[in-house]
Design a protein around this nucleic acid. Sequence first.
DNA 1: TTGTACGCGTTATCAC
DNA 2: GTGATAACGCGTACAA
Lengths: 390, 390
Amino acid sequence: MPRVKCIKCLKEETVLRAGFIRGKQRFLCKECNYHFTIYKERDNDKPSRKNHATTIIDIAKAIGISVSTVSRALKDHPDISLQTKKAVKQVAADLNYHPNTLAQGLSKRETRTIGVIIPDIETYFFSSILTGIQNVASAAGYKVMISQSKESHETEVANTHAFMTNWVDGLLICHSKETKTFDHIKLHLKSGIPIVHFDRVCDELGTSKVLLDDLNGGFQVTDHLISQGCKRIVIVIGPPHLNVCIKRLEGYKKALKKNNMEFDPSLVCHTNLSIKSILENVDAIMKKDKSIDAIFSISDIGAIRTIVHLKKKGIKIPEQISVAGFGNEPMGEIIEPTLTSFNPQTYKIGETVAQLFLNHLIEGENHQPATKVVKGNLIVRSSTLRNPPD
Amino acid sequence: MPRVKCIKCLKEETVLRAGFIRGKQRFLCKECNYHFTIYKERDNDKPSRKNHATTIIDIAKAIGISVSTVSRALKDHPDISLQTKKAVKQVAADLNYHPNTLAQGLSKRETRTIGVIIPDIETYFFSSILTGIQNVASAAGYKVMISQSKESHETEVANTHAFMTNWVDGLLICHSKETKTFDHIKLHLKSGIPIVHFDRVCDELGTSKVLLDDLNGGFQVTDHLISQGCKRIVIVIGPPHLNVCIKRLEGYKKALKKNNMEFDPSLVCHTNLSIKSILENVDAIMKKDKSIDAIFSISDIGAIRTIVHLKKKGIKIPEQISVAGFGNEPMGEIIEPTLTSFNPQTYKIGETVAQLFLNHLIEGENHQPATKVVKGNLIVRSSTLRNPPD
DNA sequence: TTGTACGCGTTATCAC
DNA sequence: GTGATAACGCGTACAA
């Protein structure tokens, strides 16, 4: 029973509390059936928190209109009069208003943010893919959150969950080397948000994928080595659960076949892709088999370190051993001899990944998972050129 | 005037609408002064959206307790009984509940997210700083949003605003090369959120800063070159508005002074730090001045490309020209000759940046901006070693 | 110990 | 054209 007089009839006893409006008690005079609010002195107009960002409420108060009108005016809703729009925009600018994306997200149930999980930002391969993703995403009005798993399955899982609880609108992921189970992805698959895999993908989930031109790349590099007269080509690959390794190996085999050469399993070096493991394996195989005349490393970093390693031992490249890589890292242009490598078009991969995400959004309910292979191209440099073109 | 009977007195005319409770109309019988709500059939219990993530409301309904109890139980509030906690956590797990960080952020007015703006992820220097930042930040429970300005002032400004409207709890920024005005930062300085600058900082804003060991680095590199017998050392720097250039140049001068050598302004190459500009300048100065015996490039990439360039012209490094860089990029170990460079300790820089942000948070109101210089160290390699130690 | 109901900032759906 | 207010999901002072 508030001690408040009705603004209309000035009676007290007929006035009842009737909910709140924006933190202000609202009253209803039963007599006049009239709702009203008591405005206190304006001294409480100071934002309660000193660092209070201006909101549409502030704008509404300043002009003396409702928040809905402000909201609509700000987004040029056709219903709103030009005059009002102008006033609102003016005040918004004066008060340095910026919409709160958190609140927008909560209300619209979308954040216009996509999460990207990659193994390692410091690797050019991934960081350049990122750039491709960001270009397309930001053109479409999406922000990109990045996290690196550092090749740890545990971190990958944690990051995945973190993204989902942040309500990202999509998840773009390249799995860590360690990752062999995919429950963390399956769990969120039901939520219906677009998930796109790239490079190290997972086939058992029905997601869209972007793949490197692995098979073709493996083929082209090997074919090129053969064309340069190499007969005994070592291929250095990683753990067998990584699809990319298998594909590149397939390409290698295909090239041998095309050139009527027999596949010798002893020429396949299984490593864990660490530099240490790669160099050890190279040393071992070269000690065992003196006939080797080429090394195809599945990664550029591996190839580069192999070159440095072999040169230290006085081995001439490419005369004694040709070396080729995969990835077209910038370092390949710097090292001597410059490195022959397969260029997987990383920017384009990134762009394609983001595009697939956007497609999924557009297609909505009746989205069908797509798999795209980004064509790459062989870049021939000195590390394999035995027969200089005449 | 709702057509609702009071639960107590069963009268209709005395019942008034009195606000809402959780989406349900609340009524007040003026007669009995009694508040009540009409519960409809339970058939609206189905989640309205099919892909509705479970919320604490779902848990509360499932158990038949209130949302506040659920909320508190989930965060082990001491008030809640062990029994309740157990039940809540059980159901939460069953329903695969994940708190909505958007709502949490809106409610708590913090997002536990920090924004990082760097010129370019593809540069090792920045990506390794990022890793340092992420390590410290995630250990403290903060997520990291990354955006690259690609050295464009415009993009930097846009990204800054995007972060602020996303209510990041802090902003860590390294300005683009183009950036000469700082209104976009000033604007948000008032909001009170911690802003930390690194590398390319701005002095006119009272923010915390993390600086490279630029002066010392410039000094050490130059001093080392001199110790190797170099007399005419070219220093290749970037635009004068970048504080890092000035500092490294100062170090260069300091080293000359220490060794009683005169500073010759004609040996300073002003470039825009692009490869093209660097190589052109190097060519020009070497053509003009045949006495030059060393080049100190302010960036490793510049130094590396310079080496490649000079080698192509048949110049012997370090015998004819010594070359040194700054940054300790991985490529420096690969190129021949391997590159002498100053290692700025990028990881540590990143960690320090994040730490400064955390400090700011802890200190709160009475925070005093700090400036930290991360000590680096000279890494001597072949590109400058003229007098092999005997 | 548990529950109630408001506030966070915005959008959307009605109602007028 | 404009206003009122539920809803988004959660935290929390205050009430019970």
